[in-house]
């Protein structure tokens, strides 16, 4: 009698436990499946970049990254840096004007300004090629490429700054003005640091897109200026997929990851901590 009563609850709980275990296993499997789908291409590329002749293991592939690919990477960094600078110099005052001043057609203007995000790279590329070729003859200089990058990506810089400006209460600027600050002092000492997270988000997004952009570059790059993504594209097209090319691709991916990690580590929400904004 006592044996039966003792056995019953135990069996019921074990059944319940096994059901929970099945759900556990399934949910784990689902998460792992998603992770594998997301991470697999990168892992395959990583493995392939270490493949030597005859299927051996070779770290030498990465010597090419600093050897013959060095110039391409430097071009990519240079174009990215110039684009970030110009884009930020345009977007910071633009965002301030859009948020702080009212004018007719503001919403329409802002929508129009974000248009480049929805236009395919090939369309931007061909239209810029036409424009620059016939108007400024800029397709033979890196300046043309930088301008193309700015035109194609500046909504990525503008939008996070606009959002940060909108989140910033006007009261800080007013307090600064009452304490004797000029408009410029209030901007430099108060507004600029407080929209830091927005600016850094814009910098990060723009960097990742510009650094990895090949389609627009393909249209407007001057002869002899080959950025790293364009080099990858050219090599894959002419020589097939070589492990050395994979090594360059892995390097570029690591640089992009580093930019994201740096953003969250260094900037993150540091400036807004301790305020009622977060």
């Amino acid at each position: 009698m006592s044996a039966i009563t003792a056995a019953r609850p135990a069996r019921r709980s074990s059944r319940r436990l096994s059901r929970r275990r099945i759900v556990d296993v399934l949910s784990h499997a689902y998460i792992w499946l998603c992770l594998i789908v997301f991470v697999l291409p990168f892992m395959v590329l990583l493995l392939y970049s270490f493949t030597g002749p005859g299927g051996t293991y070779a770290i030498q592939n990465f010597q090419y990254v600093l050897g013959s690919f060095r110039e391409n990477l430097l071009w990519s960094f240079g174009i990215s840096a110039a684009t970030l600078l110009i884009s930020a110099l345009i977007s910071l005052p633009a965002a301030y004007a859009i948020v702080r001043y009212g004018f007719r057609g503001k919403r329409t203007l802002f929508s129009a300004l974000t248009l480049p995000l929805y236009v395919p790279g090939a369309v931007i590329g061909i239209s810029l090629l036409l424009t620059y070729n016939f108007t400024y003859h800029l397709t033979t200089s890196p300046i043309g490429l930088v301008m193309a990058m700015v035109v194609g990506t500046f909504p990525l810089m503008l939008t996070p700054i606009v959002v940060a400006m909108k989140d910033l209460p006007l009261v800080y600027e007013e307090a600064a003005a009452c304490l004797g600050a000029t408009k410029w002092q209030a901007y430099r000492k108060i507004v600029f640091p407080l929209i830091g997270p927005g600016l850094s988000a814009g910098l990060m997004l723009t960097f990742i897109i510009v650094f990895n952009e090949y389609l627009v570059t393909l249209f407007v790059h001057p002869p002899g200026l080959v950025t790293a993504p364009l080099r990858i594209f050219n090599l894959v097209r002419t020589a097939g997929l070589l492990p050395t090319t994979a090594a360059l691709a892995v390097t570029m991916q690591l640089i992009s990851f580093a930019a994201v990690i740096l953003f969250f580590r260094v900037f993150g929400t540091r400036y807004l901590k301790g305020t009622y904004l977060i």
């Binding site: 209460p169 600064a176 640091p193």
Partner: peptide
């Protein structure tokens, strides 16, 4: 002229001392 705002207006990215110093520094 001095002005006390309805909503908190201490500069969140500056220390207490820097908040006090702001008016003098500008």
């Amino acid at each position: 002229i001095g002005f006390v705002f309805q909503s908190p207006a201490l500069f969140p990215h500056l220390s207490v001392a820097d908040n006090i110093a702001f008016g003098l520094s500008v």
